[in-house]
């Protein structure tokens, strides 16, 4: 069975999002003075983004795993 297209497309977008979030020029945009909750903006940008992507990946992986299993060994 072919994996539902939508799922793999979402997974692909997730990877692209992660990659482009973490390379210039986007990282440069967040390299600012100032603070959020007393923390530097860039620091928060990296770690909050990281955590969000991990959470999204965990959610997406649950569905992908089912696809992978129904695909057989």
């Amino acid at each position: 069975m072919a994996p539902p297209r939508r799922l793999t497309e979402r997974a692909f977008v997730l990877v692209l999002a992660a990659f482009f979030m973490w390379i210039p020029p986007l990282v440069g945009v967040f390299s600012l003075d100032g603070q959020i909750f007393g923390l530097p903006i860039l620091f928060v940008y990296f770690f909050a983004g990281w955590a969000v992507l991990i959470a999204l990946c965990a959610i997406l992986t649950r569905s992908l795993r089912k696809v992978a299993q129904s695909e057989g060994p």
Binding site: A11, V15, I54
Partner: peptide
């Protein structure tokens, strides 16, 4: 960067 790179690869495990 040394840890974000592997993160990207693992997020894209499916591919």
């Amino acid at each position: 960067t040394i840890y974000l790179g592997p993160t990207v690869i693992f997020l894209g495990w499916w591919f």
